[in-house]
Design a protein around this nucleic acid. Structure first.
Lengths: 156, 156
DNA sequence: TTGCTCCTCACGTCACGTGAGGTGGC
DNA sequence: TTGCTCCTCACGTCACGTGAGGTGGC
């Protein structure tokens, strides 16, 4: 069963990036298309799209730069190579080391996410407080509030 | 009671940015120091520091670019002007419009934060799933886990 | 053949980083 | 006077944006 491959424009649109971004990531060695057409245009497989989404999550959600993302992907790639590799060239010690590295990266990412969640929740609280300040200001001056906005009637 | 003013280096360190960043924000009209020394070096007040922290939150946590931040700050500034202004030049209609704009910005920011929180929580779940995959891989191959990491013994 | 997407340069932009060379206050 | 921080250019960098000019497949 042969997989349907996407052209660069389709791949870019599916992930919400530009074609320039895809060519740039390829230039940096972060993401190469699985194949090419006879004429030389890029063809992206489902695994490529998933890798791209992973890169964008690390960048947009976690705020890593492309150099840090390269390191993270490299470790994950090495583990994946190990998983699919059945030759006996990999020692137990080497397997242990690779797995340790992946656990370490995973832990760091989880810590990173936890910190970000804390900051975001703090900012959400600050925004709610700011909205109440506006409501108080309107009430003090008797300014009409936009429709659908609750009167600050009973608050501790 | 006169407020203690910070030099650019102190202000930058307190907010985790470079002095270059502070000069750049001033160049863009986002943040000007409240005062200057006789020799011409910048002096930042507490209100300036808070504004800087606000800018950094909008940028780093919410992901806005400096142009969007300029618009957000401008609306907030106009409301603040209105609050501290006692001349009667401001009509009720004008007050209403400014307040409406601030509520709209606040709502958009809250929506933005809620979306970000959702994405982050999804990514957190994905990371936990990935860690479990590593643990399974280790268990299958009988690879020793790093100390302190739980054996995937009883899982549904 | 006509559109459409693709290709490779290559210069532009945003948000700063990083010296170069000089001045100012404890 | 010696450090330290400050100042203003001004070029460099990262992650792309944006044409310029040309090729390829339904």
């Amino acid at each position: 069963m042969t997989e349907s491959l996407l052209r660069i424009g389709e791949a870019a649109e599916r992930c919400g990036v530009s074609t320039r971004t895809l060519r740039y990531y390829e230039e940096l060695g972060l993401l190469a298309p699985s194949g090419h057409s006879p004429g030389g245009s890029r063809r992206y497989a489902t695994a490529d799209i998933e890798r791209l989404q992973h890169i964008r999550e690390l960048r947009d959600v976690l705020g890593f730069d492309l150099d840090q993302i390269r390191d993270i992907l490299a470790a994950e790639d090495r583990l994946e190579e190990m998983r699919t590799e059945y030759r006996k060239g990999v020692s137990a010690k080497r397997q242990e080391d690779l797995l340790d590295e992946c656990f370490a990266i995973n832990d760091r990412l989880q810590q990173h996410v936890a910190t970000k969640l804390g900051v975001l929740e703090g900012f959400a609280a600050e925004l709610r407080a700011r909205a109440r300040k506006y409501e108080d200001f309107a009430a003090e001056r008797g300014i009409r509030l936009p429709p659908g906005r609750p009167r600050p009637a009973s608050r501790p």
